[in-house]
Nucleic acid binder design. Structure first.
Length: 835
DNA sequence: GCAAGGTC
């Protein structure tokens, strides 16, 4: 007699073989895959692990051309099931041919049943031997032996429920994803896929809803009146009973009444005992939440760690909804085991010193026990066996959580004081941990005391300080991953095993991101959710998942035929699809805008800023006929601005236009241009945007002298335009230094003439003895004066229909200037030639 | 190329 068993995965198969074969197991290879051969109860056994699902649904080939098939058509197609892991299928058939009896031994849940049926389907292609099912919820010798000694009938309904889910999820996901992606691509160029799914979309919906609340939040000012009291035993704080006071006048009034108060009276003291029970036993979601909150491990990583701890035999099956220990759970021998492990010894001993009463939750899904340790192990033992960094920490959390479940409640003493200050009521409270109970073994929870000094009723206490503090109400915080998991669990989004992957999908699609433990929505996610909430609101809410889940649960319970559930589910999806189609425009326009904005933001060279008309992105647009600044919201928004026709354009990010031009551009190496305003040198605010680098005070008025450079001349002019000018060396490279002249206070210049002549630093001021020295030395060679010369510049205009408001004018402009970018000066000037 | 569910 040969028995063949199929487990869900290789490691489970190995564990089963080692339990049933009692250590005497041969590892063999079937079609290149590992399997295990042994003898049990006189029979020849083969156990092989699958790799989860080895089959999958998809649409027939001809429906895979996105551009040729209307997505709605997919809803009427029955997808095909095919083998995704050919090597596994071959191995299953190979073993099935040798079998006199086949046992499905996958995980004990809906998907496990379905995976077993995949092996059953494949086996039935080559044999017709009896196929039964072994059900066990822990890979412990006791559970496994019991399950294989008493195999049962495979559960057809359970397997078909999973089948219905697969088909409905595929239909909905494929049709909606293609529809949204293709519709958006009609408006914005993108290769990205905008996916929709019955789990991923409501998951994003939770993040969106929180973001909406945060954005709509209006902060309010409030005042709080506090006192610091001094008793014999020390200081403590009291808060006026009015708490957060939202009217300023009221706070001022109370505070006025308190003015000059030197002491307070303790009118009442109450001491209460409060108990905090241990947390409920760990089911998957609770474990993932705590791993994120206490250990900072992402849900996805935490699940992987738990899986490995389970496969290595340290902890129980990690995918469970149950948070209630079975009535016959053998706590005692497990705790005894922990009593031998140094790290946990004291807690285990205290548990064993009294009758064991476990803390239990309410949920019993009859699937697996709560996640608990299978045996006590030291950190190094875990690290050696499971090669994942956080394995030891995760085991420690699971072990301590289990021990905490068996320990007494923590006892706190809470003291509350009522005080009067000039008849105004104040409250003060403190907490002291009297008996740590389970908190002893559970260092993750905060158990800080807030101490109060000892005071008695009727005691008078001094006042050290009275304050009336203004604060602001703050918006709700962003969701944490732990909170998101709670919401998903509460609304039945995904299974305990897949919740982390739905979070990952949303991140991959660019819908939201996680920073540390918090989750923040991204623009694409926000606009997509907004679009869906206006067209098919049910999609972003958990309802969509619960409707499908309810249908397939009926199949599992045998209350509904598989075909009927499929029809009903498809009808529901078709209805939603019709709504989506009818509102295509509303749905896609804002998403397309966001995608275009994101592309424009990425294009750093052409990015200008935000459009004041529509809020989208302004960018430099280059066409065959010219260039201009346009809005990414085009054609809905036609806001645009002209640009000069020639010269390379560079956006000066650090410059700000005082006339509210959208941005400042450098044109070639020549001049600056404010988008929407025109050339900066034509602007009356130019000096505010480009304050001149002054040389020193003007000797004629209270202005300052600064360097003015034209194409073929340069001189110093006065910022107040008093008419006083001053010559500078005509040739050579002039640099204004930070050093000043000790005699007159003007800044020194440095001159580098052409050729080999050395650089020299000097004062240029003719009214200064130092300056006179310089001019005497250089002689008459610099005695020319500059001439402003006009040159033209033309500007390209955007296409017709634009709302350009700046116009181009032919105008004079300065040439590049090596020293300072001084503004042009027109009008008379008188040259000072010294006296 | 699309979903969610397994597992690696």
């Amino acid at each position: 007699m040969t028995v063949v068993a199929f487990a869900e995965k290789n490691k489970a198969a190995a564990q089963i073989a080692s339990i049933l074969g009692d250590g005497e197991v041969d590892k063999i290879s079937v079609e290149g895959l590992p399997a295990y051969e042994f003898k049990w109860k006189g029979e020849e056994w083969f156990v092989m692990g699958l790799s989860g699902h080895i089959m999958s649904y998809d649409f027939p080939e001809k429906y895979n051309k996105w551009n040729e098939v209307d997505p709605g058509v997919l809803l009427g197609i029955y997808p095909e099931k095919f083998v995704t892991r050919a090597e596994y299928a071959a191995a299953v058939k190979n073993l099935a041919k040798r079998a006199d009896k086949i046992i499905l031994a996958c995980d004990y849940d809906r998907e496990g049943e379905n995976i077993g049926f995949e092996a059953k389907t494949l086996s039935e292609e080559v044999t017709n031997v009896p196929i039964s099912r072994a059900r066990f919820s822990a890979l412990s010798p006791k559970e496994v032996k019991k399950a294989f000694e008493n195999p049962v009938e495979p559960d057809y309904n359970m397997a078909m429920a999973a089948e219905a889910r697969q088909i409905l999820d595929l239909k909905m996901g494929a049709a909606f994803t293609r529809f949204v992606t293709l519709s958006v691509r009609e408006k914005a160029r993108t290769k990205d896929i905008l996916s929709i799914g019955p789990c991923q979309t409501p998951t994003c919906g939770f993040v969106y809803e929180r973001e909406k609340i945060i954005r709509a939040f209006e902060t309010k000012d409030f005042w709080k009146i506090t006192a610091i009291f001094v008793a014999k035993g020390g200081e403590f704080e009291g808060i006026h009973r009015a708490g957060n006071i939202y009217e300023k006048e009221k706070a001022v009034e109370i505070f006025k009444r308190l003015k000059g108060a030197k002491e307070g009276l303790v009118v009442k003291k109450t001491v209460k005992e409060a108990k905090t029970s241990p947390p409920n036993p760990l089911n998957t979601t609770e474990y993932l939440k705590r791993a994120s909150k206490f250990l900072g491990i992402s849900p996805e990583a935490a699940l992987e760690v738990a899986e490995q701890l389970y496969l290595a035999g340290f902890t129980s099956y990690p995918r469970t909804e149950t948070n209630k220990y079975a009535d016959d759970f053998d706590f005692k021998s497990l705790v005894f085991d922990f009593a031998r492990q140094t790290e946990y010894k004291p807690f285990a001993e205290s548990i064993l010193s009294a009758p064991i009463v476990p803390k239990n939750g309410e949920k019993d899904a009859h699937d697996h026990p709560p996640i608990h340790p299978i045996r006590a192990a030291a950190r190094r033992e875990i690290s050696a066996a499971v090669n994942i960094p956080q394995a030891a920490e995760a085991y420690d959390l699971i072990a301590r959580h289990f021990l905490a479940n068996l320990m007494p409640a923590a006892v706190f003493e809470k003291t509350h004081l009522q005080l009067h200050v000039k008849e105004e009521p104040f409250d003060s409270s403190g907490t002291v941990l009297k008996d740590a109970g389970w908190l002893e073994v559970y260092p993750f929870e905060n158990k800080k005391d807030k101490l109060l000094p000892f005071v008695e009723e009727k005691e008078k206490v001094d006042i050290k300080k009275l304050s009336n503090t203004k604060s602001k109400t703050s918006p709700p915080k962003k969701l944490t991953e732990a909170e998101l998991l709670t919401l998903m669990d509460k609304h039945g989004i995904g299974t305990k095993a897949t919740a982390p992957s739905h979070i990952e999908t949303n991140k991959k699609r660019g819908y939201f991101e996680t920073k540390g433990k918090t989750v923040s929505i991204l623009d694409t996610g926000f606009t997509l959710m907004e679009g869906l909430s206006l067209t098919v609101p049910i999609l972003i809410r958990p309802d969509i998942r619960s409707k499908i889940e309810a249908l397939i649960q009926e199949v599992e319970d045998g209350k509904k035929e598989f075909e009927a559930a499929l029809d009903e589910g498809t009808a529901l999806i078709k209805e939603m699809y019709a709504q989506l189609e009818a509102n295509k425009k509303e749905l896609t326009s804002s998403i397309a805008g966001t995608i275009k904005d994101e592309a424009a933001l990425e294009d750093k060279k052409n990015y200008i800023g935000t459009c004041k008309v529509c809020g989208h992105v302004l960018k430099i647009v280059q066409t065959d006929t010219g260039r201009f600044v346009g809005c990414s919201g085009y054609p809905d928004c036609r806001n645009s601005f002209p640009l000069p026709k020639t010269g390379a354009l560079n956006v000066l990010r650090s410059k700000e236009c005082k006339k509210e031009g959208a941005a400042v551009l450098k044109v070639g190496n020549k001049y600056n241009w404010a988008v929407g305003i025109g050339p900066c040198f034509k602007c009356d605010l130019e000096k505010e945007c480009y304050p001149p680098e002054t040389v020193g005070p003007c000797p004629e008025c209270d202005g300052s002298m600064f360097l003015i450079s034209f194409k073929d001349s340069r001189f110093l002019g006065c910022t107040k335009r008093c008419g006083y000018t001053h010559s500078v060396p005509k040739t050579g490279k002039l640099t204004l230094l930070d050093k000043t002249c000790g005699t007159c206070g003007w800044k020194l210049f440095r001159l580098k003439e052409e050729g080999d002549s050395p650089e020299e630093d000097f004062c240029v001021n003719r009214r200064c003895t130092e300056g006179i020295k310089y001019w005497r030395k250089t002689g008459p060679r610099n005695e020319s004066r500059g001439q402003a010369k006009a040159s033209g510049d033309s500007v390209s205009r955007p296409e017709a229909g634009s709302t350009a408001r700046s116009t181009a004018r032919s105008t004079a402009r300065p040439t590049p200037c090596k020293v300072s970018k001084g503004p042009s000066i027109t009008g008379e000037r008188k040259e000072d030639r010294g006296k």
